[in-house]
Every structure is written in C-alpha cells, then in structure tokens.
Amino acid sequence: MRTDTTDSRPTVLIWGALAVVYVVWGSTYLGIGVAIESIPPMLSGALRFITAAALLAGFLLIRSGPSAFKMSRRQFLGAAVVGVLLLTTGNGLLAVAEQYISTGLAALLVASVPLWLVVFRFAVRDRPKALTLAGVLVGLGGVAALSLTGADGGSGVGIVTVLLGSVSWAVGSFLSSRIQMPANALATSAVEMVVGGAGLLVLGTGVGERLDVSAVTTRSWVALAYLILVGSLIGFTAFSWLLGNAPISLVSTYAYVNPAVAVALGALLLDEPITTQVVVGGLVILAGVALVISTERKGPKRVLEDVDGGGDVGLGVGGGQEPQPARHHVDPTVERRGG
C-alpha cells in the first residue's frame, strides 16, 4: 500500500475534505467555548462523545454488521485506555481550561502536542533527529513564552490545565501505536468515545458538576449539536477518508492551520484579543511544530509505522478533536481505497 501517494480520485475531493478538516477541527475550540457557557465542561464533553459514539456505532452496525466490533479483551482495553487519555483527561481538561483562557490561546497551546510526542520518544530511547530536537526546543520556547506571559488571554490556572490536557492527549497518541487496538478504525473510535465520554460523566459528577437543563441556553445547545454532528462525525469522516486517499505530508498540514482558524474565529465571534504576544508566541510554536513534522516525514518507513503518534508526530495534534485512527488500524474498506 502506498501511504504517501494519491490515487485517481479527483484532486478537488481531497482539497474539499482537507478544507473540512481545516475549518471544522479549527472551529471545535470555539464550539467548546460556547457550549460550556451554560453546560458544565466535563458533562458537555460526556454528552458530546457518548452521543457521537452511539451515532458512529449505529452507522457501523448498519454498514458492516456486528463483525465490525469483533475485538479481543486486550484490544478493547487498549482502546479504552487511549479513550480515557485522549478524551476524559485530554479533551476534558481542555474544556475546563476554556473557562479561564481564550479559545485561541488554548488552540495554540494544544498545538504543542507533537513536541511532547518527541519528548516521549526520547524517553524510550528512540532518539529523534537533531533537527527534530531543535524543533522541539523552538516550539517549547513558544509554549513557555505564552505560558509565562499569559498572553492577555487568561489565567495561569487555565494555561496549566490546558497543558496538562495536551500532555495527556500526547500520552494517548503515543500509546495508541504501541498497544493492541481493534482492527477496525471506526470501531476503535466508537470505543474510545464511549469510554472517554463515560469517564467524563463520572469525573464531572464526582467533582460536583450538575446539568440544569432549564439553564442551558439555545446558543450552547447549538454549539453542542455542532460538536457532535460536524466536529465529531463530519470532521472525523473527512479525516479518515484523507488518510486513505491523500499524502500523509498533505494531511498533516492541518496541524498548522487549525490553531490559526481557532484564533481567527475566537477574535471574530467571541471578541477575543489577538495581541502581539499571541501572534509571536503562536508563530514560534507553529514554527517548531513545522520543523518537527517536516523533519520526521522525510523518513518513509517511520511514517508508515508510526503515523498516529510515533514517527509522524504531525497526526498527534488535536486536543479539541476526535480520537484519530492509526493508519495501520484503518478500516478494511478505507485500506483498499488507499491503493
């Protein structure tokens, strides 16, 4: 199978799907920010992911039957652990953080996920290239600049919280290619979302969150519906299709675009300030991420083996998005489309 080449499908479909991922996943930070205006952050995530999991599971059952969910106990536990790391603590802490910091600042700090992935690889003696380490130092310098100054976008509590969520997301991405996972990528995501959503429900209830339906605004309900239908299903479907039909080097560009989209939407729709600190710090982070991704994807073997959180660290970005399928766990129908 060729991972880094396109087939005969029209280029317009590839760019259309990429545009969906650019805009939709960049907008999820805004969606989370609006949803938590009147819905407790962890409970909003629980509603989002459990509902999305039910819709995705229903689609899979209709299309492929119960065989799509055939998995061993170890594979189920692997998906469950990753779901908790990505969604319960990763996405959950992001939602909590957005109570204190701007959506744009949150997106820029989440963009540091590929940098943490390289740090984890170094910790297990998988020594990255010198340019990769340089990119990590540059990117983390940008993270430090935004964190220490606050970037006029929120409190230190929010910044620490979103960074903890980013590290959790990175751990989940790192482990997902190193433990047994279900063979079907969509079934994997359904398990991750239902377990991650259940974890958010338990954690949110445990810390005292309560959903007062009468207090939820129409604006927040619309944002939640957008996150479920557009962010979780349409965006995820477009991303999954791209993995089978577009070059990995092209797909990974969403890592640079999503934070810019999030900052722009936050400024336009929530009147969030775009300060010099945000611009400079954000550009430094993205420069580091760009150096890491461009350096890592030059090794084709590593891209093929570790696309979901090892070698091609670009696909680990996405604290505001959905669990991302490992390329070597792609659904058989997607695999065939990939050539």
Rank of each mutant, 00 (worst) to 15 (best):
M1R: 12
D7R: 15
P10I: 03
L13F: 15
I14D: 09
W15D: 12
A19F: 10
Y22R: 03
V23E: 00
V23S: 05
V24Y: 01
S27P: 05
S27G: 11
T28K: 12
L30C: 09
L43N: 02
S44A: 15
S44R: 00
A46G: 08
R48Q: 05
T51Q: 06
T51C: 03
A57F: 02
A57Y: 01
A57K: 05
G58W: 01
S64V: 06
S64M: 03
S67K: 14
M71W: 04
R73Q: 04
L77H: 05
V82Y: 02
V82H: 01
G92L: 07
A95N: 14
Q99S: 12
L105M: 11
W116Y: 14
W116H: 11
L117W: 04
V118Q: 04
R121S: 14
A123I: 11
D126Q: 15
P128F: 10
V138R: 08
A145L: 15
L146P: 03
L148D: 07
T149S: 15
S166F: 02
F174L: 06
Q180E: 13
M181K: 10
A183D: 15
L186Q: 13
T188M: 11
S189A: 10
M193S: 12
L200A: 05
V207H: 14
R210M: 14
L211N: 14
V213N: 05
S214N: 08
T217D: 09
T217I: 10
A225D: 03
I228P: 00
I228F: 12
L233C: 13
I234V: 15
A238T: 10
F239V: 00
W241E: 04
L243W: 04
A246Y: 12
L250Y: 13
V251K: 07
Y254H: 15
A255C: 05
V257R: 12
V261A: 14
A262R: 04
E272H: 07
P273Y: 08
G281E: 02
G281S: 04
G281L: 01
G281K: 06
R297N: 02
E305D: 12
E305S: 13
E305C: 12
D306N: 14
D308L: 02
G309W: 00
D312R: 03
D312Y: 09
G314L: 02
L315A: 05
L315S: 04
G320E: 08
A326F: 02
H328T: 04
D331W: 05
E335N: 13
R336T: 14
